[in-house]
Design a protein around this nucleic acid. Structure first.
Lengths: 208, 208
DNA sequence: GCCGCCGTTGGACCAAAGTCCAATATCTTT
DNA sequence: AAAGATATTGGACTTTGGTCCAACGGCGGC
């Protein structure tokens, strides 16, 4: 499943650029989807496979930078490689600050682009894998009852069953039962693992 | 101690720019150190206080970008704000990829710069705090004997004393002793805390 | 009203971990 | 050789945590 063929998405309003990039990327045995506008891309159903985006900065309608922003807001997270004919320093800085992988000026060396694309795909593979892990954990967390979640927080904070029981005004026995259910529901084989899960879920440090 | 007055370091070969920035930054009640060359900055003993660097891209001798690279190699980690009169897109992209906070073109709005500086200082305050935490942990880790370190890894991997003993070919009793010493030396008040320490130290995941 | 989930608890044990005190064998360093 | 750090183990308990089985009251839904 993590071994899906990677897909490169290209968004550019200039068909000739699209064709050129298509030739280049096909030669590297990469999946490819092309779009002539930012909105077309947004309406497209992205598969699970790792991918990256090659994006023209300047396009009629929604610009590349706007698309980047909208994607971030919608949680569509793909590494973005910008290409442009008339880029400026402020534009490139904005794009990079917003997390772009690179920002290339035309004309560029096709070899450079391919190298960047491969790096971006690796990055997305990694990111997607972590996203899936986190999603699984969150789903498991949701199966905890309110009380269990409460005990969960106390357990990973390092409290003893006895202390937790005192805090919640219940018997230590009750905590043991909750604790067992927590380990089971979260799929943790040891306390160490449970703590690591909690860390990934951001339990113990943030506002909470 | 974390409440030290922040210091802004400015490196620019043009004395008039230095003076202008000095006026601006002094007005904001910020500590200030100016340098007319990258090497001067490298030879300077940086205090512990949070700080950031305002750096001219183009300078005779060692350029701003080279300084950024050298700092990274030497582990001198300050947020860097580049300013330049004649920047290009590739230069700004390189700087941003290397971790720069921002890349400003002259002329720029002094208010913008101040805002960026304050953000950079906050960032460094946070980074410095985490660095200190990590340093303390590493020092504690170093006080562990080889055997203890070995047991440490097994413990945070979630193994039972019994299993660890079997792996190492020793008695379970021995592991208990090691374990107690580990908790004491690492200053962990609970297993949960110990696991968190191990996470920060990168034990359990990396090459190892 | 009956069923299922949630939170609760008890009893009876077992297993794992921690605590004191004490002791031995190596190895390195002084 | 003596001192010190390291690694090891035993005995004797105490505390904690986990497991099985069983049970009860409250609450929402069918």
């Amino acid at each position: 499943m993590t071994g899906d063929k990677p897909v490169v998405y290209v968004v550019d309003d200039d068909p000739s650029v699209l064709r050129a990039l298509e030739r280049l990327l096909r030669s590297a045995d990469l999946g490819l989807e092309t779009f002539t506008s930012a909105l077309d891309f947004l309406n497209f159903q992205h598969p699970e496979a790792p991918g990256c985006l090659i994006l023209d900065v300047k396009m009629p309608g929604v610009s590349g930078l706007e698309l980047q922003e909208r994607m971030a807001r919608q949680g569509i997270l793909f590494p973005i490689i910008f290409i442009t004919g008339h880029g400026t320093v402020p534009l490139s800085v904005q794009a990079m600050k917003a997390g772009a992988v690179d920002f290339l000026m035309k004309p560029f060396d096709p070899k450079d682009l391919l190298e960047i694309v491969f790096k971006a795909l690796d990055k997305d593979r990694q990111a997607k894998w972590e996203q899936r892990e986190l999603k699984r954990l969150r789903e498991r967390l949701k199966t905890l009852t309110p009380r269990e979640a409460q005990v969960f927080r106390s357990v990973v904070a390092g409290m003893l069953n006895k202390q937790i029981a005192y805090d919640l005004g219940t018997a230590e026995k009750t905590i043991k039962v909750h604790r067992a259910r927590i380990m089971e529901k979260m799929g943790a084989k040891s306390l160490a693992e449970l703590v690591r899960f909690a860390e990934k879920l951001g339990i113990g440090s943030p506002s909470s």
